[in-house]
């Protein structure tokens, strides 16, 4: 039995699947990272992904161009981010609540909008054609390497983008003036504003970027992963992303590793369902990342608490 599992896991197609499954989570996790860095909790990622997935697909269908579709999804994500920002920064809706509202729009509003624009109910299966799906690319040279080639080559363009963005966002946050200002705003707003950095502007930029990333995630889902939009498509990935952000300590690279962990668990679950003996543990396997997240949060909280306590009870120094 374990032999069977072992054989099916250490295979290139399984590793390929992990990367494919990880990509949308990674987009959303990066979206969570960037918002959180500026001190904004973006719990609306789930809804943002649903809505941008729908519009990305529709725009691609109307223009018959996957590229314009992806751009459209990104723009919709930005707009949703700015809307959340408007309600939370301007009208002072608690940011968690405006995120929940976006999720509502994502859950049912999308079905309504789909019907309004196309007359279709629940999914876009009828509209799918190959030219509006995100193409995959073979990487020359690498695709010749056994196993590694099978694992890394032949992914969708957006899959590569997701992993490239990990580096880009890390560089953005740590190596550019805008990233510096954003982190400063998230950590100590009054220090930032005392040197003339506009806290509000930084927060708007952060949540718009967060929306753009969620938009990529949405486009990936509808225009590649599910090959069309359907209502249960995002399936909690926006929330998983929040967990990945938290577990990755809010850093892009950390978020990537925790996203991979989620990807691994989901890929395992699919694999395991086909195996006798351990098939009946598929749900518990799927549960692992969430448990790990909670444990991760606990460990993190304990370490912070320890530090504080060590501080409080310092021996007297003369």
């Amino acid at each position: 039995m374990l032999q069977q599992l072992y054989e099916s896991i250490f295979r290139a197609d399984f590793l390929f699947a992990i990367i494919r499954i990880t990509a949308p989570i990674l987009f959303a996790a990066l979206a969570a990272v960037i918002a959180e860095k500026a001190g904004v909790v973006n719990i609306g990622l789930e809804g943002m992904m649903m809505i941008s997935a729908l519009f990305g697909f529709l725009i691609a269908y109307w223009t018959q161009s996957w590229a314009i579709g992806v751009l459209g999804a990104m723009l919709i994500g930005i707009l949703l981010g700015l809307m959340m920002g408007f309600f939370s920064f301007k009208l002072k809706t608690n940011i968690i609540l405006s995120g929940i509202a976006v999720n509502m729009l994502g859950a049912g509003g999308t079905i309504f909008l789909l019907h309004m624009f196309t007359g279709l109910r629940g999914n876009t299966g009828a509209l799918v054609s190959p030219n509006i799906l995100i193409p995959t690319i073979d990487i020359p040279l690498i695709n010749k390497i056994p196993i590694l080639g099978e694992m890394l080559s032949g992914h969708a363009i957006l899959t590569y983008l997701a992993f490239i963005l990990v580096v880009v966002i890390r560089v953005f946050l740590y190596k550019t003036p805008l990233g510096l200002k954003m982190r400063a705003v998230g950590e100590n707003p009054s220090a930032a504003s005392s040197v003339g950095v506009s806290v509000l502007k930084m927060k708007y930029i952060a949540i718009a970027m967060s929306g753009a990333l969620a938009g990529f995630g949405g486009a990936f889902m509808s225009m590649y992963y599910s090959q069309g939009w359907n209502q249960g498509m995002v399936a909690g990935r926006g929330f998983i992303a929040l967990a990945a952000q938290a577990m990755g300590r809010g850093e892009p690279v950390g978020a990537m590793f925790s996203s991979l962990l989620f990807g691994l668990a989901q890929a395992m679950k699919t694999k395991v369902s086909g195996l006798r003996g351990i098939a009946s543990y598929n749900y518990l396997i799927e549960m692992i990342p969430y448990v790990v997240t909670i444990i991760g949060l606990v460990v993190y909280a304990i370490s912070i608490k320890r530090r504080a306590r060590r501080h409080q009870l310092k021996p007297v120094k003369e």
Binding site: I43, A243, A246, I294, L297, A301, I302, I304
Partner: peptide, 14 residues
């Protein structure tokens, strides 16, 4: 421990 109840409860749902 001061762990955010929002994130833990969200994970707990799953």
């Amino acid at each position: 421990l001061g762990a955010s109840e929002m994130v833990t409860s969200l994970m707990l749902n799953f």
